[in-house]
Simulated scan of single mutants.
Amino acid sequence: MSTRYGVREVIGGRHRVVRLFGNGGFAEKRSYATRELAQGRAAQLGKIAARRDAVAEAKRRAKNHCECAGECGHLHLASRACPWGEGEDIGGGVGKVVLVAVALDGHDDNLSLDNIKMLCQLCKQQDEADRNNGGAALFDIREPQS
């Protein structure tokens, strides 16, 4: 069971998931018929919180910029490092850049900082296409125009 969430019995033999940190209040308004169901939900919430914390730490390490240095299959022209940062406007009606956490070993449960790399959505798609399609890239990544 999670170290962040626990289970408390409430009126009528039902159980609720509670936070074990902060004010110790209820984590969810709903209650569960059995302790096992509530413990399962507490474990789920613990995994979600651990992933959120690991991704936030990886984002701080990356300083809100894509950490791709050409591994996605695109050389990113002369710089060889992806120039995109989170929230930058790509232009041409494409939208803003979003960073995505990618597990290098392919296992999303491995939350060590060495296993998480922050990629922009363009490098992530290029990387996935390269891995899954045997080297066939989806598209050419446009470089930002200065």
Rank of each mutant, 00 (worst) to 15 (best):
M1S: 11
S2F: 03
S2L: 04
R4S: 10
R4W: 09
R4I: 04
G6D: 01
V7G: 07
V7R: 13
V7F: 06
R8M: 08
E9D: 14
V10P: 06
V10L: 11
I11T: 09
G12M: 08
G13Y: 02
R14G: 01
H15R: 06
R19S: 12
G22Q: 10
G25W: 00
E28A: 05
S31N: 03
A33K: 08
T34K: 15
R35G: 05
R35D: 08
R35L: 14
R35C: 13
E36D: 11
L37N: 12
A38S: 00
Q39I: 04
Q39F: 06
G40W: 12
A42L: 05
A42P: 06
L45Q: 00
G46I: 03
G46H: 02
G46D: 04
K47C: 11
I48Y: 05
A49L: 11
A50W: 06
R51D: 05
R51A: 10
R52A: 06
A54W: 03
V55Y: 14
E57Q: 12
K59G: 09
R60F: 13
R61L: 14
A62Q: 13
N64F: 09
H65W: 15
C66P: 10
C68S: 14
C72R: 14
H74A: 08
C82D: 05
W84R: 07
E86Q: 12
G87S: 01
D89H: 09
G91Y: 01
G92D: 04
G92Y: 10
G92K: 12
G93F: 08
V94F: 08
V94E: 07
G95E: 02
V97D: 02
V100S: 13
A103M: 03
L104M: 01
N110W: 01
S112E: 02
L113Y: 10
D114S: 02
N115Y: 00
K117P: 00
M118C: 14
L122Q: 02
L122H: 07
L122S: 04
L122C: 05
K124P: 05
Q125C: 13
Q126W: 06
E128Y: 14
E128R: 13
G134R: 03
A136S: 09
L138F: 05
F139N: 07
D140V: 07
R142T: 15
R142K: 15
E143N: 13
P144C: 14
P144H: 14
S146T: 11
S146Y: 08
